[in-house]
Structures are given as structure tokens and as C-alpha cells.
Design a protein around this nucleic acid. Structure first.
Lengths: 255, 255
DNA sequence: CGACGGGTTGACTGGATTCAAGCCACGTGG
DNA sequence: CCACGTGGCTTGAATCCAGTCAACCCGTCG
């Protein structure tokens, strides 16, 4: 299947860059699990993590059925997870952007439930899961931050399930774009120019659409004046996005 | 809105049955968070929980926007969570059966993201969240069990999202029935007679279908010889369900 | 150059929705 | 007791949105 193996794409992914972690590729300090910890706690945390990269587009971070040992925090770049459907097609399960925590769907199991594949040049921060658990006894705040992440993910997944179940293709797409807008605004400030790191067919798959339907939907949204397809990977929002209170986005003006 | 207020359905739900918890309504010891803990740890755990019930069908356990303070483990009965869609309809977010942990989608937030409503006579075990967190420092095993639950839920949500996105109505329905089969087999042993605690319209909503489509799908499955509608609330599986390795169910013979 | 894959567009099909009517079990009140 | 109303569920006919199949465009790469 597909190409792989950039600088870091081998399956046992043991390519360690530096022994002392300076998080130099990290563009997401504020989104780090360790953010807000005391000096001592942070260095303890840094003691267990390993910076890994660069992964090139198409490289795998882990594969389905690999032993679950680590979580991965995304320092820069972006990653998709995907798995195979009953009829043998690939289905994109999720996109992970800067600051997101990858691999938490493996918690409680022995192996990862899907493949994780870089969508562009990507640096991650590997967090060995057992070591992380060991830190919790001495660091209740870190523990709580972590559990909050899990809760947030559960909430987000349920919510996106709701969107998929109830909304039309157009609204699903706009919903995704708005989410991307707010995510992007969080670390780079608000811009109406949205950079799409993923291919359109991956995005279609994630939204439960065929590539054809997705393409049509985009052109339709453009005709209606909601977006503009600036380039292959860039979409411009032409109207101010609705605010995202508690992650929920209300779309009113689109059918 | 709908009726409410059975014996325990008032919004502040402070109806405490006993001060010393004997878990006497619990049909799910093996599924309890505290299962496998030592004697001392269990009694510490029992010290923070409160048994609540009985809730009658239609009673609310908590409402959207209520302050998040507790999780609820289901001792007996069943609960649905639901919320309102963009166009003002109710959408069922999830079903919670014996042993399931309710309210975890509120973790990390201030309020519950949806309403929780009993679907039949139901007893729950209220677990004050902060107290639970406090136990973790002294009980790493309990902590781990809890975190494993969260991970399992994330995994399950992602997986059911995959089913909703990729599968036809028929397969979605069969998928749900098989899941119910395995869930039921877990505590009551395997039976092909499935008891549906929820109304068909709730089930339809949960599966992303209209009540009409859902009804048609059932009759279609019956004609094809996969199921039999025994009664209002009971469906019989006519073929041996596929096994559920790691929660994933492979449906092969249905279009 | 030609092959290839990602993406777009068109014509057609089909599965699920919509709108409408009817059925059935249940509770209520005369 | 029955008449009646109600809500959950089912069935039918028409509609529509997204899927399917096919052709085509275009940039990339061998």
C-alpha cells in the first residue's frame, strides 16, 4: 500500500533526535499537556517524552495492530488516522492538528485501532503511556489535564457524530470548515484563509461523503457565496464564522 | 416538555436512599469501576458514592446546562442522552445500559452537554467527580480502570462514527442489534431474544434515520430472514451473530 | 511523450426522506 | 362498558439528495 518511509517512517519508529528534549520543533507550547505545570514538574515530564521527526507526508507514525505504548502530541504538521471498512475501503477516522493528542483511542486496549499517517512534514512528541501514568501520582494537576483531554475528546466525538447523523452534506462541510477556522485561530490568530492539510478525498471520507459529492458541495458553496476556492489547499471563508461556544457551532443560514 | 418527576426525577436530584451503600440494586458488580479493588479500597470507594433511584421511564437524571458534578454508573435499567439539533429536533446521542458510565462527556467542561433520561425503571450509582479524582492518588488501579473506561468510550465512539458514515441503514441496524446482543450476553448470558429498552423513534434517531426508514428497514430485515419482530420491545436474531473482537463487528452477508 | 492519481463535471440511479394516511395499543371519560 | 383521542409505529407514493458510473482536466513523474 501507498508509499511510506520518509526519514522517520519505519514501523518500529525508534528514530530519536535528541536525548535532552528542548521541544524546539514545538509550535504548541500553550497546547502542551505540560502547560501550566511548575518548573520541576515540567522537567519531570520532559524526562519521559521523546521528540520525533520529521515525518514526511505519507509516513506512518503507527499502524493498526502495533502494540500500544505511546501517545503522541503534535508539535507541528498534521496527522490523519484511518482504518478499513467492511467492504475493504479506507475510511478516515480523524484529523490531528497542532497540539492534538494522538493515540488516545488505544487506551484500554493492547493495540492501536487504526493507522496514523502524516499529511505533511510533521514533528511529534512521543509520550510513553506507562511513564505518563507513573507521573500522575505525584502530579495531580497533570493527571487532571490529561483526563480533561479525554473528556473533551469524548464530547467532541459525540458532537461530530451528531453532525454526521443529522446534517446535510453542505452543512457538514461548513461545520468542518468552521471548526478548522477556530482551531487555526487558536494558535495562529484568526484568518479567513483556511489551509487544508489533507487531500480532498480524505476530507470527503472523514465527512462521510464520496469525493464527487464533496467536490460538488464545495462548488455549490462557492456559488452561494459562502466560500472561495483560492487554491488546491486553501479555502477562504467569505462570511464571519459563528462563534464556537464549548465547541458547538451553530450554522443557521445554510441549507 | 414531556412529563417527568417520578420518584427521583426532580432537577436537583438529591434523593438519597441510604447513607451506607450496599449496592443492593446493582446488577453489575462485575462491571463496576470498583471491581477488582481490595477490600479497603472498595469501602473507600463506597464512601463517596450514593445510590439513587428508582427513576421511572421519562425521568431526567440531569439536564443539559446543569453543573457537572457527578458521574453515574448504571446499576439497573437504562438511560438515553439527547440534545437538540440545529433545526430544533431532539437527537439521541447515546444509550447507556447496565454497567455503563454516564456523564463522562462532561469531563473537562462545566456543564453536562446533553439531557440524560431514564428509559425504564432505573437505579444509578452517583459518583461525585471531585471525590473520585481525590481517590486516584491513593488508588492507582482505580485511576487506571477509570482512564481505561474513557479510552474505551473514545474508541467506541470513533467506531460507531465509522459505521454511521459508511454503512447503509440495514447494516447500521444490524450493527446495533449485534452490539446489543454482546452487551446483553455479557451480563445475562447469550440469548437471541433482544430486549429493546428504547422507543423505536429514539433508536432511529440514534442511528441517524427517520422513524419511517427505520421501520421499513426492520420489516425488510425480517423478510430477508435475519430477524423476527417478536413484540413491541423484543427482536429475535435468527442467525448467529458475528463475534465482537475488540468491539468491532464484521457484517458480511447483508447489503 | 504517456501514464498516473487527484480532482472536477455530467447523466443517471437509488436509497432514504418527506408527506400523507392508516393501524394498533392504551388511557380517559362518558 | 364503549367511544374517543392520543402517541407510537407502520405502510404507501412521490421527491430529493447523495451515490454511482463515466468522461475529462490537469499537474506530476518516470
Amino acid at each position: 500500500m501507498s508509499r511510506s518511509n520518509g526519514s522517520c517512517g519505519n514501523s518500529n519508529h525508534l528514530h530519536l533526535i535528541k536525548s535532552e528534549q528542548d521541544c524546539k520543533h514545538c509550535q504548541s507550547e500553550k497546547l502542551c499537556l505540560a502547560f501550566g505545570l511548575g518548573q520541576e514538574a515540567v522537567s519531570e515530564f520532559k524526562g519521559i517524552i521523546k521528540e520525533r521527526g520529521p515525518y514526511a507526508a505519507g509516513d506512518t507514525i503507527y499502524r493498526q495492530q502495533d502494540q500500544f505504548r505511546s501517545l503522541y502530541s503534535i508539535q507541528s504538521g498534521s496527522i490523519k488516522t484511518e482504518t478499513v471498512t467492511a467492504d475493504g475501503r479506507q475510511s478516515v477516522m480523524g484529523f490531528y492538528l497542532i497540539g492534538d493528542l494522538l493515540g488516545i483511542d488505544a487506551i484500554g486496549g493492547k493495540t492501536y485501532p487504526n493507522d496514523a499517517i502524516a499529511m505533511e512534514t510533521t514533528w511529534v512528541c512521543e509520550i510513553p503511556y506507562k511513564s505518563l501514568l507513573n507521573l500522575f501520582s505525584g502530579q495531580p494537576y497533570l493527571q487532571q489535564q490529561f483526563i480533561n483531554r479525554l473528556g473533551g475528546k469524548i464530547h467532541a466525538d459525540e458532537y461530530s457524530g451528531k453532525v454526521i447523523r443529522n446534517e446535510s452534506a453542505t452543512r457538514r462541510v461548513m461545520h468542518f470548515l468552521y471548526q478548522l477556522y477556530w482551531h487555526q485561530a487558536r494558535d495562529k490568530g484568526p484568518t479567513s484563509r483556511l489551509h487544508l492539510p489533507m487531500s480532498k478525498q480524505d476530507l470527503a471520507s472523514f465527512l462521510g461523503l464520496t469525493p464527487e459529492s464533496f467536490s460538488r458541495t464545495l462548488t455549490q458553496l462557492q456559488k452561494q457565496g459562502h466560500i472561495e476556492k483560492e487554491s488546491h489547499k486553501v479555502i477562504v471563508l467569505l462570511k464571519t464564522p459563528p462563534s464556537a461556544e464549548s465547541g458547538h457551532i451553530e450554522i443557521l443560514d445554510i441549507k
